[in-house]
């Protein structure tokens, strides 16, 4: 894993095929060591921004720089050390259907040989237990409630203890209590020195009031710091 110290867009342009660009010559230095709440109108590109940060999408022009290194020309293998330090929680979908819930969580740990099997199992079970979904561990995704699938997707994003955590609408399909449990887990891992840079998009203001965050906004195909900066919150 490579340390991630800075994230920056340089004249970045991105458009989906046959659609108007969502970002056009966008340059932005992302705030680090914070929980960053990404704001925008619906369809202005919050999810796309998170996918660009996760390098799941590539810009048509410009560059996305991690530690001032352009990620655009990197191959999958070259980007892997950074990738393992970036967790991505999907808004919808993303759970591997031919694996049980426990196997879904253990997959990155086992595949990258981060932990031996018993330790990987222990870590996955501990997080499932903390989220109150341990009883679903041996079931496949099609047999569990949608909320459980969402939780699995969220905790899988942080199972490798990455430095960057990207969460696309983390509270969609999640009960309020599960949401709070999840952010307790995030806070604990942050306190332990992991998940240093958290970026999330959400319309759930009630939920966001539970944490301290910095805001950035997408407007007019560019990214801006939001006036007011650090918002008052209950916990960091």
């Amino acid at each position: 894993m490579s340390d991630i110290l800075s994230l920056r867009f340089e004249n970045l342009t991105f458009a989906y095929p046959n659609e108007a660009p969502l970002f056009e010559s966008a340059s932005f230095e992302f705030p680090m060591n914070e929980i960053v709440w990404i704001l925008s109108e619906n369809g202005a590109g919050r999810s796309t921004l998170l996918q660009l940060l996760a390098v799941l999408l590539s810009p048509q022009r410009g560059a996305f720089l991690i530690n001032e290194q352009d990620t655009t020309p990197m191959t999958f293998e070259e980007f892997l050390p950074y990738r393992l330090n970036i967790g991505y929680g999907f808004d919808l979908g993303g759970v591997i259907h031919n694996r049980t819930m426990l196997e879904n969580l253990m997959l990155p740990l086992i595949y990258h040989e981060v932990l031996p099997y018993p330790d990987a199992k222990k870590r996955a079970e501990r997080y499932m237990d903390r989220m109150g979904i341990l009883r679903y561990k041996d079931l496949r995704p099609s047999l569990v409630p949608g909320g459980v699938r969402k939780v699995i997707c969220l905790i899988r994003a942080l199972i490798l203890h990455p430095q960057v955590l990207l969460l696309d609408d983390p509270t969609v399909g999640l009960g309020f209590e599960s949401g709070l449990r999840f952010f307790d887990l995030v806070s604990d891992l942050r306190a332990a020195g992991n998940l240093r840079h958290v970026f999330l998009s959400s319309f759930d203001e009630k939920f966001m009031l539970n944490m301290q965050f910095r805001q950035i906004a997408i407007d007019d195909k560019r990214i801006h710091h939001f006036p007011g900066d650090i918002a008052p919150g209950v916990a960091s």
Binding site: F90, G94, V95, I96, H112, A157
Partner: peptide, 15 residues
């Protein structure tokens, strides 16, 4: 897998 974003999920896990 593509329609359910499982392939994207694998990529995001570095697989």
């Amino acid at each position: 897998m593509g329609a359910n974003r499982e392939i994207e999920a694998l990529e995001s896990m570095g697989i």
